[in-house]
Design a protein around this nucleic acid. Structure first.
Lengths: 297, 297
DNA sequence: TTACGATGTGAAAGAGATGTGACGATCGGC
DNA sequence: GCCGATCGTCACATCTCTTTCACATCGTAA
């Protein structure tokens, strides 16, 4: 098992949501000496961090809710450039710091062009790594906060990222942080069904343990507030055995069930609700694969 | 001023990649060899650029509307750190790449902590400089940050940048420097929620450590003075787990909550480039005052 | 239909975050 | 050197949110 997670009991990931105080960093490297030294410094800095020994899928990285990823290209082998490009393309918001052995100017230029945010040459001082990661994260945060300019709208609800809040007819729903993150995630999925596990890992940043009801509870809280503010609409739909789907549906059903033009879930199977057991098994398997990818043995 | 402009009207933005718009870069350096080589490359890349031989004021930099600034700290002499800190504080949106001679880890860390986005050690290849500048600029969104033209008004309060003070009905709130900076920052955000982190880094210039309560304390001080001067209004709203939002809300709630369409500070979007010389001089003076106030010897 | 697991619901408690008052340190002016 | 102003930290009070639990309800498979 090549993974060292550092939850740091007290400094819990509890508040780590969004972009609060704590930094979350993943290090993709196999140089045990370097890892050890860096980990110690990261600990001292109070940053949450995990070490990965092999490349992971973009999706897995996404669910880690990282501030930045430090990577030694040597770990990736000949696939390095391809992997880097793919990751940068998939996660433009993620800060990526390459920290690898001696390289040519051409290599560094290539890496930076592909989307890396910084390139540090080993051997290097861990303090400098931290400073550069911080610099990258600082920049990333500045842009991220403004990029979400366009509010999401569905039915009577408007989700505004710049205010960390959702509105109905101009009135705030008074969502808490988690509630807002949830509605933002669901609304952004725009009609797709999101599995519980995915919701959980995207919001909490780590893998959901069996039996955890947090997602359900927050869905309920959201539903309550939505119902109160916009009684004639239904927004969050349960897909038994799978998860939830966000779509505005009017209850003023004059015709065909009151559904609203709200774009049909393209690609995601006509309707997850119509899935059979086979589907569910398939989903479970996919999830398992994903976790394996995230936690390489 | 020792300045050489190189507009190159028709230059093809061949490599300008990332953003389609042409890049604007300034180089603050005196190493003629380096400048010459770099300029050639910048030309070839189709980037607009200018060379500066001596430090300039933040406002002057602002008016250049740069994507990034490349600077050799050697030019700045012993004032380097101070200058860097001031510039980063004043123009958080500007990409700053330090490109200077041999340095210690501690120096690099310090520079990055103060707000530099990257640090390149000379001698270096111009192509790498370009790649790193591009990487930095990729993360940048808009350079235009401050145009201190119109006073900000919300509810009964008027924030006047030119006087470093806020007023209610013509009476000064007697804000201290930090208090003023805070209310200015909040008011300028105009309704957006600002995270503690962001507030801290914009006001103090460096990253907030976990558990720091400075922001809260100054919010309280501001609230006290606002409350005293304008009791029938609420201005600073807490967003639990996130930060604060500035918006004038009347307590004389006759209707829908007493909210007020708090008038938009017209002219805020006004482009710095469209200002006349008089304005700029005024701004420069104000900035100078601020700097003097900020760094009392 | 029945049994079982998944989901909905309400409440309570604990963990954290924020509000608040006061204190000591620092700095500039006198 | 003394004094006032400002700043940043601390301890304590208060409040909100999160999480967990127990139980009700619902959907699915046997």
């Amino acid at each position: 098992m090549t993974e060292i997670t550092t939850p740091r009991e007290g400094a819990a990931p509890s508040v780590s949501g969004g972009s609060s105080a704590a930094m979350r960093v993943a290090v993709l490297d196999r140089d045990s000496g370097f890892i050890q030294v860096l980990s110690k410094r990261l600990d001292r800095a109070g940053w949450e961090h995990r070490v990965l020994a092999s490349p992971v899928a973009a999706e897995a990285v996404l669910s880690m809710r990282l501030s930045a990823l430090v990577v030694d290209l040597a770990v990736l082998g000949p696939q390095a450039w391809e992997w880097l490009e793919r990751l940068c393309g998939a996660l433009p918001e993620l800060g990526i710091v390459v920290c690898t052995g001696p390289s040519t100017v051409a290599q560094r230029v290539r890496g930076l062009r592909l989307g890396a945010d910084d390139w540090i040459t080993k051997p290097c001082h861990p303090e400098e790594v931290i400073a550069r990661v911080q610099s990258v994260a600082r920049r990333r945060r500045r842009t991220a906060s403004r990029s979400e300019a366009a509010p999401l709208v569905a039915g009577e609800v408007e989700v505004r990222s710049d205010r960390f809040q959702a509105f109905v007819g101009g009135a705030s729903l008074d969502l808490t942080r988690r509630e807002f993150e949830l509605i933002e995630l669901l609304a952004a999925a725009d009609g797709r069904v999101l599995e519980r596990e995915e919701i959980y890992s995207r919001l909490w940043g780590y893998t959901m343990v069996r039996g955890d009801r947090s997602v359900d509870v927050f869905v309920r809280k959201l539903r309550q507030k939505l119902e109160k503010a916009s009684p004639r609409w239904r927004y969050i739909h349960t897909h038994f055995g799978i998860g939830y789907r966000f779509a505005a549906e009017s209850l003023d059903a004059e015709r065909d069930g009151g559904k609203v033009p709200d774009e049909l879930p393209v690609g995601w199977g006509a309707d997850a609700g119509e899935r059979d057991a086979g589907d569910q098994r398939e989903i479970a398997r996919a999830q398992q694969e994903r976790e394996l990818a995230a936690k390489p043995v």
